[in-house]
């Protein structure tokens, strides 16, 4: 009975370590893809602003629907918030950013780039908005490159460290 309990505890600690490692590693693995999706979304939004000259809420909705995924959902949420009563562009954009923060692997710096862009969206003329969209895409490209480097450096390390660290901790506590 006692041995079974100890074996069960060991298995639980080892599994917990493994899952922590997998969680951290997967956040490193997902971040470049999430940044790529954000760039694609901003590219589509640029097209909407430049050629379609649609209302911002409609443009956000279209981009969100055509893109899909978590980033697309964030754009749809921002569009829905913009359509709501007594909501400004910045508040609606923040609603989308909140969704991105909780569901994607984007870092605080990535979110900050998008937040800065949100201050300009719908508030200035078309040329100025396009300029800021281009700047945001360029900054996200830099972040993507850094995220790829971080992924190459840390993903495998965290996978091994989580699994073997859990085993080591389990052994010590056994």
């Amino acid at each position: 009975m006692w041995m079974t309990l100890k074996a069960g505890g060991f298995a639980l600690v080892a599994t917990a370590g493994y899952m922590v490692g997998q969680t951290v590693a997967s956040s490193y693995a997902r971040r470049p893809d999430d940044l790529k999706q954000c760039q694609a979304a901003l590219g589509l939004l640029s097209s909407e602003v430049e050629y379609a000259t649609t209302h911002l809420g409609v443009a956000l909705q279209r981009v969100g629907r055509s893109l899909g995924g978590q980033v697309g959902d964030a754009f749809c949420r921002a569009a829905a918030a913009l359509a709501g009563p007594a909501n400004g562009t910045v508040e609606a954009w923040e609603e989308g950013l909140g969704w991105l923060q909780t569901t994607t692997a984007l870092s605080r710096a990535d979110i900050e780039i998008l937040r800065t862009l949100g201050l300009r969206l719908g508030a200035t003329d078309r040329a100025d908005q396009l300029r800021h969209l281009a700047v945001a895409v360029e900054r996200l490209k830099v972040q993507e490159e850094l995220a790829r480097q971080a992924r190459d450096r840390n993903e495998t390390v965290w996978r091994y460290l989580g699994a073997l660290g859990g085993l080591a901790l389990g052994l010590i506590l056994l």
């Binding site: 390390v157 073997l164 080591a168 010590i172």
Partner: peptide, 18 residues
């Protein structure tokens, strides 16, 4: 067992140039 785990981790970090 602890020694083996540390050895594997050491080898893994070395191969990753860490």
């Amino acid at each position: 067992g602890f020694g083996m785990i540390v050895a594997v981790l050491y080898w893994m970090f070395k191969t990753q140039n860490r």
